[in-house]
Design a protein around this nucleic acid. Structure first.
Length: 204
DNA sequence: GGGAAGATGTTCT
DNA sequence: GAACATCTTCCCT
């Protein structure tokens, strides 16, 4: 079952936690179907969150976040990397969830071609930039509707037994403000989360 | 295994 | 001109 508009039309903190264990699918022409189980996310709170790109209002770059829930927000950062978000909440809230890591399932060969021959399975998609490189996500996939099965990006209801997961939270990575918000969520039993060993201790 | 440095486009001061 | 929702390489323990 594909996750629809109502799934995303909730607070980003709730969506962020609920996305753990769901299956991300990326289908682009010529590269076949790539997929993975989401194991790590971060919530961003829009206009009221000093850590969010939306904090200072709408710009050309963050426009997607101000639109409808269930659409993608892809941005380019550090001059090198793309990051993939899914817009949440109500129109104008500018809330979003950053996808930080997945456990690769389908298309490992394609992912490895893009990431480098010698990269191990564990390091193919354990970070927001790595995940986008492996899946071939760039700005051409910004602002696409992820609630349609015809879309190049969408998310399916989890196939994993939820009893095999333990969802933990921590502070957001690479963020120096709003440290009181532990808005990074991850499966603490998964070896596919981004490796910042100290932060992977379950804090809740 | 872990810290520091460097790469480099977009946005903001 | 600096900061940045990052990643890799290089060197140190």
């Amino acid at each position: 079952m594909i996750l629809g508009r109502s799934f995303y039309s909730r607070k980003s903190t709730v969506v962020s936690r609920d996305l753990i264990g769901k299956k991300l699918i990326v289908r682009k022409s010529h590269s076949g179907s790539l997929s993975g189980i989401i194991v790590e996310t971060e919530a961003y709170g829009g206009l009221k969150d000093p850590a969010s790109h939306a904090f200072r209002g709408e710009t050309k770059r963050n426009k997607a976040m101000f639109g409808e829930a269930g659409f993608t927000y892809v941005y380019f950062t550090y001059g090198f990397h793309h990051c993939l978000n899914l817009v949440c909440g109500r129109i104008g809230d500018a809330q979003a969830v950053l996808l930080r890591a997945i456990e690769p399932v389908d298309g490992l060969e394609t992912m490895r071609e893009r990431r480098g021959r010698s990269i191990s399975d564990l390091e193919l998609t354990n970070g927001p930039g790595k995940l986008c490189q492996a899946l071939g996500i760039d700005l051409s996939l910004n602002e696409v509707d992820a609630t349609k099965k015809t879309s190049p990006i969408y998310v399916l209801e989890g196939v994993q037994d939820s009893s095999k997961r333990t969802i933990a939270s921590s502070v957001r990575i690479g963020i120096s403000v709003a440290q009181e918000r532990r808005w990074r969520f991850f499966d603490s039993r998964s070896p596919y989360v981004s490796h910042r060993s100290k932060l992977n201790l379950p804090t809740r």
